[in-house]
Each structure stands twice: as structure tokens, then as C-alpha cells.
Design a protein around this nucleic acid. Structure first.
Lengths: 222, 222
DNA sequence: GTCTATAATGAGATAGAC
DNA sequence: GTCTATCTCATTATAGAC
């Protein structure tokens, strides 16, 4: 599999119209991929939603796998920057604690997902797909792991006696819980009843903060 | 969608050979569905893995959707019984606490996934697919929610001041974290390094117990 | 860059012999 | 109950006109 979106060296800068088409295609791909997963999505549906012909999707997006990668990568840098900026801002206003570090990772994402429009809402579900399927581990490694490493280091500083295993595992639990709000919100509604978004987010922060704080305790509660 | 595996009233009890074939087909379906998801799996691959012809898969499993439902449902009762038995046993030996309740839900599943052979390992990933896709919410409701309700009630008894919203949301976080060990173990290994299975399970229990216990505390830490 | 048309493949499902 | 053979449809991808 070729993950890198192919770099057929462009002769000319693409026209403005071309760029708009490309964005429309990526918007449509984001919707369809997030709704139905990689296999369930069809190029035809993406083309129809974008209002273009199927051949044009291939022209701008390459193969289906390349298109998927490009779709995920498109917002990844912006998301990472939001997270790192939040972390810097929090650092500037005093010493960090567990909750602050987790909030700087979780809140920029959840804010975009719930208040950033339908594109970001779809992007949240898209990332849930990526995170649950080993097939896309290269995408996770390329798009998200560098930022995750920064946060893991901050957590390690706050939990000097914790092993990397415990911190890493707990972080995956945190990310899974965060993504469950995107992909399994229906399940939350089904089990917990109608619930305010902001309340879920606060519950998530409470839950994960306490989970990490429990690493500090000496041993298993006996 | 017709979720119930069709009940074409059988004239005769199926032969032993027929039942074996049926099990082989379900075993194969379990493998292929869990590996590639519903859309990514093909009846042909399932048939090939089972060593039968494609037509036979339809004969025993019905449509692809019916086959998927049957595959998930096959082990669901056994799993529920393990969980409820564990809960009864723990109740018999003294008053319950948060960790015990969570352990009775998480450990039977994780024990089977990691020590129950390749079938259960596949089944774990299969449930992760079901849990992440709204399309299968009827399966979750039919196969898992009744048992989940029992555990939610136990948790509510231990957390008398908690809202159903907080308990339900936290439970979904717990389930998501549990399933991440099945579907995203590669991510844990990537971020946390090589990690013993039993250590991950203990970290999970610590994490979720602390998460639930945090509901007791008066308000957000300010 | 964008379109039409089509190639090439693989999918789910079924009919009917045995 | 199991097999062979086939139907029908949707898929990704590309060739080539404009």
C-alpha cells in the first residue's frame, strides 16, 4: 500500500476552480467514509455527493486508499496545532496538572466535533474508524502519534513513578473513550438517556483524570 | 432489515453433519467479519475458509446481514451467563464494591478473549465492530443491553447520588476501553511498548474503577 | 480539468441437479 | 444438505474525446 498521497510533480499551480473541486471531493469523501467506513464507501457515492463524475475523484484523489489517507490527513495538522497551542497556553498560565494536560488533548477535538459543523462531526467518526482498524496504523503513526508523544511526555512528568506501559495503556483508554462519544453516541443515549454534550465531555474528563491519578497510588486496592 | 435469523420452521431436526457444517461456517464468518468488518468481508472468503461452497453459506446463514447477526449472537448468551455467574459468585462472598462489579463485567470477556482460543479472540474484535457502528445498534440492544442493565443497576446502588447520565456515560467509556484492548492492541503496543496482557487488564480495572469512583466526589476539581 | 464510455473484476444471491 | 453453474448488479479504475 502506498500511503503517501502521490507526488506527481505538478507542472503548474492548480487553478482556483480545480482546488475548489478538490475540496468538494474531500468534503464528500469525509462524509461517506465516516458514515460507512472504508469498504462500505463507494467512489460513486463520493462523486455523486460532490456533484462530479467518478473519474474526477480518481484524478484528484488517486486510488481509494490514497483518497482515504488524504481525507484523514487534511485536518490532522490543524487538529494537532490546536492541541499543542492549548497546551502552550495552559503552560503559560501556571504549572500543569493531570486534568489540564488531558483537557488540552481532549477539548480542542471535542469542541470542533460538536461546534465545528458537520465536517468536523464527520471527521470525528472518521478518526474513530482509523483508530479501531489495524489496517490504518500507518495513518495513526503519521498523523497523530507525534502529538500524542508530546502529551505522553507531559503525563510522564506528572507521574514520575509510572511505567510507560501504564501511561500508554491509559492513554489509549482515554482516546477510545473520547472517540466513543463520536462513534457510539447512540449507545450512550440508549444506556444513559438524553444527555447534554457538555455534560458528557465533563464526565469524560472526570473519568480519565481519575483514571490517570489512580496510577499514583501505591498498588492495587486490596 | 430483518435482524431475527429467519425461523423457517424446520420439518426435521438437522443432521449431525449439517450442524457441524453450520458451525464451521459460523467459525469462518467470525474470523472474516472480525478481520475485515461487515462490508470488507465476502461470502466467498467465508465459504473458502469454511471449506464449503458459497451457496451453502447462504443456505445455513441466510443473507449476509442475517449471517452477521447470527455470528454475533452465537456466543452472546454464553458471555452474558459468564458475567452474571461471576456477579452472583462475588455477591455470595460478601458485599460488592465498585471494583468487583466492574471486574465481573470485564474479566469474563477478557479472559475468553485472551485465553479462550482464536475463536474468542476474533469474537472480541467482532464486538468492537458492532459497538462502533450505529448500524448494528439492534444487535447491541438484543445481545448485550439486558446484561448491561443488570450491571448499571449494581453500579447505581453503589453510587446513590450519581445521575443515570453519568453512570451510563462512564459505562460506555469502560466498554470502549475494554474493546480497545481487542481492536487497538496494536496502538497500545505502539505507544506503550510491549506489554503483558494481564498488566493491561489490571491497568484497565484501575482506570475504570477510579473513573467511576470519581463520580462520588462533590463537584469538578476546581 | 472535466466529461462519457467502458473495461475488468468481484460481489450477493439463486436455480436446479444430485 | 451439498454441489455446479449462472444471474444480476455494483464496484474501482482507466482510456480518450473535448
Amino acid at each position: 500500500m502506498m500511503l503517501k498521497p502521490r507526488e506527481k510533480q505538478r507542472q503548474r499551480a492548480p487553478s482556483k476552480r480545480s482546488l475548489q473541486t478538490r475540496e468538494r471531493i474531500l468534503d464528500a469523501a469525509e462524509m461517506v467514509f465516516s458514515d460507512r467506513g472504508f469498504e462500505g464507501a463507494s467512489i460513486r457515492d463520493i462523486a455523486a455527493l460532490a456533484g462530479v463524475q467518478g473519474a474526477l475523484v480518481h484524478h484528484h484523489g488517486g486510488s481509494k486508499e490514497e483518497l482515504f489517507f488524504t481525507t484523514v490527513a487534511r485536518r490532522a495538522d490543524a487538529l494537532s496545532q490546536l492541541r499543542l497551542d492549548a497546551l502552550d497556553a495552559r503552560k503559560a498560565s501556571g504549572p500543569l496538572d493531570l486534568r489540564s494536560v488531558l483537557a488540552c488533548f481532549l477539548e480542542p477535538f471535542l469542541h470542533k466535533v460538536f461546534h465545528g459543523g458537520s465536517h468536523w462531526r464527520a471527521y470525528g467518526r472518521l478518526i474513530a474508524h482509523v483508530s479501531a482498524d489495524m489496517r490504518w496504523r500507518e495513518i495513526s503513526a503519521a498523523c497523530f502519534d507525534p502529538t500524542v508523544e508530546v502529551f505522553l511526555q507531559e503525563l510522564a512528568d506528572l507521574l514520575p513513578h509510572a511505567t510507560r506501559q501504564k501511561i500508554g495503556s491509559s492513554f489509549v483508554f482515554t482516546v477510545s473513550s473520547m472517540l466513543s462519544i463520536c462513534a457510539s453516541r447512540w449507545r450512550i443515549e440508549s444506556l444513559a438517556g438524553e444527555t447534554e454534550t457538555d455534560e458528557i465531555i465533563e464526565t469524560l474528563l472526570d473519568f480519565c483524570e481519575a483514571g490517570f491519578a489512580s496510577i499514583r497510588k501505591p498498588g492495587p486496592a486490596l
